[in-house]
Design a protein around this nucleic acid. Structure first.
Length: 669
RNA sequence: GCGCCCGUAGCUCAGCUGGAUAGAGCAUUUGGCUUCGAACCAAAGGGUCGGAGGUUCGAAUCCUUCCGGGCGCACCA
């Protein structure tokens, strides 16, 4: 509702500016005054115009106020000039509250297919907390975009890229074959055994991957030979149709399945899993290469250190330097095809992204169902595939949730698209970048790792799959559930154990998802169990608890949220809202009405943290209200009805906000 | 050396495309459960917004420069 009022107000101001001064502003700032006593909205537009109109800001503001007052937009009670020239807007509290109660709000959405890629864990080890941040960011963003009961939304596809033929998978295959002496049949047997004994294959690989990484360099005499084994294994995976590739496929598919299970525990689902193996075998690169050559982005280097390679001008380098005005080779160019004819990672990524935008002529994946969720299936790429199948490429906009260390490669892909003339695609390519999750030295010690004196002094230490150094996602979740379960057990011994576990899980997921979302994307998270396991203060459970409290009120009052909200339609709430006491109620309504605004902001800035903050603030506001007014004991019937409606609106919007964060509200806790 | 990011209260972080008196959580101190559940609320202390210039009516926010820290800069993925 707040957004609706903002929009109509801005439209009026623009109309006035045009009519009175013949001015059109591309952007009009709206803020909220520092205190509600000054009003609900503030426009600093008079400052902006002061120079252009050669007038004092206050004089301009006075003129604008007069124009606005002659015909106030709906819901606006008064306009006044304040400070050095602010235009402060006061809303009609009662009518606005009624509109909020009837759930009027601006819509969000539009045409076009948007592709969100997130998670993309190498299928060679267990997911860790860094992967959790990625997946939670991506999933939350996807929820903000997707159509739902609250908004029209956008058509969205969620995909999780699987690098099943890369070095990381090759490494565990080397481990299985050369450290564990596994063959294809015995690998198959191992998988069955692990499954039957309820062991996690991804955990098994976690240790094996760390072991094999050390093994490569453990014996100085063997370094060259072992490096060769690694390369041969990688080559076998890329070629396919051999036992080594079959082992890789078995293991990576089993690990992938585990990743999907882990993510499902925290309410994350996918639509499609494109795999690198299909990008190779379906020859996406060949089509991309032809296109890049045709567009002149890719060229054969004939001199210098990159002689014999196909290269591309690196992102960010000035165009003047690169053009062939000088006979000197561009030494800084990015190699796309090596002198031995094989394609690099960035080359494959360019092909893949051409496909995402539907720009790769004659190429598409085969598709088959891979994993069933309660209300939809997740598809995976294959060479042949089933028909019919959904369409996943041909996106109008894409969001790649990839950590900031991949900044340069991502920019190279964008530069390639732009260089090929696909400016639309390049403009709608968002690298949804975020900083890593590291461990505090204290946390590392707590986990039993020995750390150097140098690391001890740092504020955080980077995790490393190669060293087996990190916190596994499932382990963290298990610990969170255990801690939440202990609380629920003592608070609610009367509830059935199964239900207590369900509630504990909801709380654990709430704590985890909120923890990952409360930091803005470019903040490095220094992970510590003490903070992550907290259920108090600025946490997910704090918001969940506020919702539970509200729900308890309706249970005891023997009414519902919907009834309470409709009950105020015919009541005289003006007299209450316009008192000093009513101001705190009004502030709760005002904040509750900002949900749409926040969602729009999060989408525009690709920053879900704002919504997490909002959910917390709303819960704080509600808790304050809860303590100030004892709702069920209220004797004045009008006041009681308004109190109930206030609790209802807070509950409704908190529940919605948490929903977008992927957090459920437990019935009790 | 080049590129990107960060530096705000004791600690961890917000600060909405520049706006009115810089805010939260944790920690510390104090007060509040016979009430709709205290996973809560209220209050207090705590700030040269890394330093210095500049732009502006106005700067934590934009520009320049310096200091400190992180991450990238492969014919690896």
């Amino acid at each position: 509702m707040y957004r609706t009022i903002q929009q109509s107000l801005l439209a009026r101001i623009q109309a006035i500016l045009l009519a009175k001064y013949d001015i059109t502003l591309a952007y009009l700032a709206v803020e909220q005054p520092p205190t509600i006593a000054l009003g609900e909205l503030a426009l600093p537009v008079a400052f902006e115009l002061a120079k252009r109109l050669r007038k004092a800001p206050r004089a301009i503001a006075t003129e604008l106020a007069a124009e606005l007052s002659s015909q106030l937009p709906e819901g606006v009670a008064s306009v006044e000039v304040a400070g050095a020239g602010y235009l402060n807007i006061r809303l009609d509290r009662a009518s606005t509250v009624r509109r909020i109660a009837s759930d009027q709000h601006a819509d969000i959405g539009g045409p076009g297919f948007r592709l969100v890629e997130h998670t993309s864990i190498n299928p060679n080890k267990a997911a860790h907390i860094g992967h959790l941040r990625n997946a939670i960011l991506g999933d939350t963003f996807q929820r903000l975009l997707r159509p739902d009961a609250y908004k029209r939304g956008y058509d969205v596809g969620v995909q999780n890229y699987i690098d099943n033929t890369g070095v990381q998978v090759a490494d565990v295959v080397v481990g299985l074959v050369h450290l564990e002496a596994k063959t294809l049949p015995s690998t198959r047997q191992l998988l069955t055994e692990l499954l039957e004994t309820n062991q996690r294959i991804d955990f098994y690989c976690w240790d094996l991957y760390a072991r094999v990484s050390q093994w490569y360099t453990a014996d100085p005499d063997q370094v060259a030979a072992r490096k060769q084994i690694r390369l041969d294994t990688l080559h076998a995976l890329e070629t396919g149709n051999n036992d080594t590739a079959a082992i890789a496929d078995l293991v990576s598919t089993a690990v992938l399945r585990r990743h999907l299970e882990t993510m499902q525990r925290i309410n994350i689902e996918y639509d499609f899993l494109p795999r690198e193996s299909e990008i190779l075998t379906l020859h996406f690169w060949d089509a991309a290469r032809a296109l890049m050559l045709e567009k002149g982005v890719l060229y054969l280097e004939t001199a210098g250190k990159n002689k014999g390679c196909y290269v591309m001008r690196r992102a960010g380098t000035a165009e003047e330097i690169a053009v062939e005005d000088s006979s000197l080779p561009d030494e800084d160019a990015k190699v796309i095809v090596r002198s031995n004819g094989t394609v690099t990672y960035v080359g494959k990524d360019i092909a893949y992204h051409l496909w995402k935008f539907g720009l790769l002529p004659g190429k598409d994946f085969g598709y088959e169902k891979f994993y069933e969720y309660p209300d939809h299936a997740c598809w995976i790429s294959t060479t042949h595939g089933e028909t019919p199948h959904p369409t996943f490429g041909k996106a109008d906009a894409i969001y790649n949730v990839i950590d900031s260390r991949q900044n340069d490669p991502q920019n190279n892909v964008i530069a390639a698209l732009r260089g090929m003339g696909y400016t639309e695609a390049a403009d709608h390519y968002t690298h949804f970048s975020y900083e890593m999750v590291a461990l505090t030295p204290r946390c590392a010690v707590e986990l039993g790792y020995t750390i150097s004196d140098e690391d001890q002094k740092k504020s955080f230490i980077e995790v490393s799959g190669r060293k087996g150094f990190g916190v596994k996602a499932d382990d963290l979740l298990d610990r969170l559930i255990l801690a939440a379960k202990a609380e629920v057990d003592t608070r609610h011994p009367e509830i059935e154990p199964d239900e207590r576990l369900t509630i504990a899980t909801q709380i654990a997921v709430g704590a985890l998802r909120y923890f990952m979302l409360r930091f803005t994307r470019n903040t490095v998270i220094a992970f510590d169990f003490k903070d992550a396991l907290s259920f108090e203060g600025e946490t997910g459970p704090y918001v969940q608890y506020a919702i539970v409290r509200a729900a308890n009120i309706f249970r005891k009052a023997n009414t519902t949220e919907v009834e309470s909200l409709s009950a105020i339609a015919t009541l005289d709430i003006e007299s209450i809202l316009n008192t000093e006491d009513g101001t705190s109620l009004w502030e709760t309504w005002l904040l509750a009405s900002k949900l749409t605004l926040l969602i729009e902001q999060c989408i525009a800035t690709a920053e879900p943290a704002h919504l997490a903050k909002y959910a917390f603030q709303l819960a704080q506001q509600f808790n304050n209200f809860y303590h100030r007014h004892h709702i069920l004991n209220e004797t004045d019937p009008t006041r009681k009805t308004l109190f109930l409606a206030t609790a209802a609106i807070a509950q409704r919007q908190m529940t919605r906000a948490l929903g977008y964060l992927g957090i459920e509200a437990p019935p009790v806790m």
